[in-house]
Every structure is written in structure tokens, then in C-alpha cells.
Amino acid sequence: MCLGIPMQVSEVEGAFAWCVGRGRRERLNILWLEAVVPGDWVYAVLGQAREKLSPQQVTEINLALDGVEAALLGVRNLNAYFPGFMPQK
């Protein structure tokens, strides 16, 4: 639970922004953030943009989410989804 997904802002409408990520398009509340502009990447959860993300964070989190999905499908070696960290035994 509490998993968020990276989404990219395409349009800002006051306290909300249309964002796209992982095959979804959603209207997120952006009150938690300051100075949101199209092109920004945000961490989306429960209809809210909670944090801005750097491009590296976007890559890392998307990979991590892919890893969670792969694990659900029974993939055992998840190293490829968490690069830069100590590999599993």
C-alpha cells in the first residue's frame, strides 16, 4: 500500500494538473507542491501529486514498480529492477 506512481504534468488548471504516467491520465490535486509547470514529474498517489521527482527518481521508481509487478508474476531475480543496489543473494 501507499505505492505511488510517477506521472508527468501536461496541463495545469489552478489547484489541479492533468498528468500522464504508466498508461494512465489523471487529474491530480497539486496543492502539496509549489510552482508546478507542464513537463514536471510528480509522485502521484490517491489523486494527489505529493512530491516533485527528478528524472533519475522517475526512472528508479518506475523500475521499482515494474519489479513489484514482476514479483507478483513470479519472477525471482529482481536485480534488474533495482539497479545500483546490492544484488540479492
Binding site: 500500500m1 501507499c2 505505492l3 505511488g4 509522485y43 502521484a44 498517489v45 490517491l46 505529493r50 512530491e51 528508479e60 521508481i61 521499482a64 514498480l65 513489484v68 533495482f82 543496489f85 546490492m86 540479492q88
Partner: peptide, 12 residues
């Protein structure tokens, strides 16, 4: 490793 993964996965 586990701390890094947990910090990646939890938004709320």
C-alpha cells in the same frame, strides 16, 4: 538495500 527499496516504493 532494503532501506533503499522501501524509500523508493512508499509515496504516502
Amino acid at each position: 538495500g532494503v532501506l533503499q527499496r522501501i524509500s523508493l516504493l512508499y509515496a504516502l
